[in-house]
Amino acid sequence: MNARSFKRRTLSLLLLAAGLAAGPALAQGDRFPSKAIKILIGFTAGGSTDVPFRVLAENASKILGQPVIIENKPGAGGVLPAQMMQSAPADGYTLAQVPLPVFRLPYTQKINWDPVADLQYVIGLAGYSFGLVVPADSPIKTMQEYIAYAKAHPGQLTYGTPGALTTLHLTMENIAMQSGITLNHIPYKGNSESLQAVIGNHVMSVADTPGWGPYVEQGRLRLLSTWGDKRSSKFPDAPTLKEVGINLVQTSPFGLVVPKGTDPKVAQVLHDAFKKAMEMPNYKESLAKFDMETYYMDSAAYRKYAVDTMKTEKAIIEKLGLAR
């Protein structure tokens, strides 16, 4: 056998070996799923995260032909499911919801994993709804007046949130940064406490999810702005931040990830199934009950969102002096 023939035979054997090695993974992807799939979410049952997710899971189970089970893992600001992905098998049968607080973890505490590099992004699903309210008898009637008051009274305009380092807290500081104002943050232990504080005029404003909705409808609170890409269907009179000159959309998007190293073919099956599931009317209706909307991102766009959000969160955390 001459040298050229030997090289050709060696190359053929190497290609054959590579094909055999790849075969089982591809075959596994073709059969996927063959058993129940579970989704870990970081919040309690019955809330604005859990209820729509159960509708989504039911839709996806019909598409995939296997049960899709929701497991609640509340606590730590919703970040536990992403952390659990670090030890979960990379087989596509365990997914996790990733809320915004995951992307600020490396800057506020010591962790041994990276939210971008150590998670495999499958699909962006939806986003929460937020807004800024003041008491109905407040002299501040618009978002422009809110900013003007803060400029005239640096550090005196107070706002409440459900807690420090929440998305609401950091978004308000982002608004302040863009507007060139200094606000006075008053953290509370939860939504109900902060809302009662603003109703009782103990704080001048509150940033929150639509727990303020009934009070706005009753005329006890005034909604200055909502933070989505477009106006709220329930409160169409309130402008978005963009409409008042603040280049910011905060719907706190969330989606699904799998452990790093999951077969891309398996991840694609999951993406396609959940995309169909999120487009079904019953899922959109379940979101609408909480004034939420779908916020679709494919795998590449969702990962890019994660990269960009890590940078934004780092800047805000450092500005607040809260970096570890």
Results as ranks from 00 to 15, higher is better:
R4D: 12
F6Y: 13
R9L: 09
S12P: 04
S12G: 07
A18K: 10
A21Q: 11
G23T: 09
A25N: 03
A25H: 00
Q28A: 12
G29F: 00
R31P: 01
F32S: 01
I37R: 00
K38M: 15
I39N: 06
G42E: 01
F43T: 10
T44H: 09
F53H: 07
R54L: 13
A57H: 02
E58M: 15
E58K: 14
N59P: 04
Q66G: 13
I69G: 01
E71Y: 03
G75I: 02
A76S: 03
G78D: 14
A82R: 01
Q83M: 08
M85G: 00
Q86F: 10
A90F: 02
G92D: 01
Y93Q: 07
Y93E: 01
Y93A: 13
F103R: 04
F103P: 00
T108N: 10
A117M: 12
I123D: 00
G124D: 01
G124L: 02
L125G: 05
A126S: 15
G127H: 06
Y128F: 12
Y128M: 05
F130G: 02
G131Y: 03
V133M: 08
V133C: 04
V134A: 04
D137I: 12
K141S: 12
T142M: 13
Q144V: 15
E145R: 13
K151E: 08
P154C: 10
P154F: 05
Q156D: 09
Y159A: 04
G163D: 06
A164I: 06
L170V: 12
E173G: 11
E173P: 07
I175T: 07
P187K: 10
K189S: 12
G190A: 08
Q196S: 03
A197P: 00
V198P: 00
H202S: 06
S205D: 03
P210E: 10
G211C: 03
W212Q: 04
W212M: 05
G213S: 11
Y215P: 00
V216F: 02
E217H: 05
Q218M: 09
T226L: 11
W227E: 06
K230F: 15
K230V: 07
S232F: 04
P236R: 08
P236T: 14
D237Y: 05
A238W: 09
P239L: 14
K242I: 10
K242A: 15
V249T: 15
S252L: 07
P253T: 08
G261W: 03
P264F: 06
P264M: 09
K265H: 06
K265T: 05
V266K: 03
L270I: 09
H271Y: 15
E279A: 14
M280R: 08
M280V: 08
S286Q: 14
F290K: 13
D291Q: 14
E293Q: 15
T294N: 07
A300Y: 04
A306S: 13
V307R: 04
T312H: 09
I316E: 03
E318L: 09
L320T: 05
L322I: 02
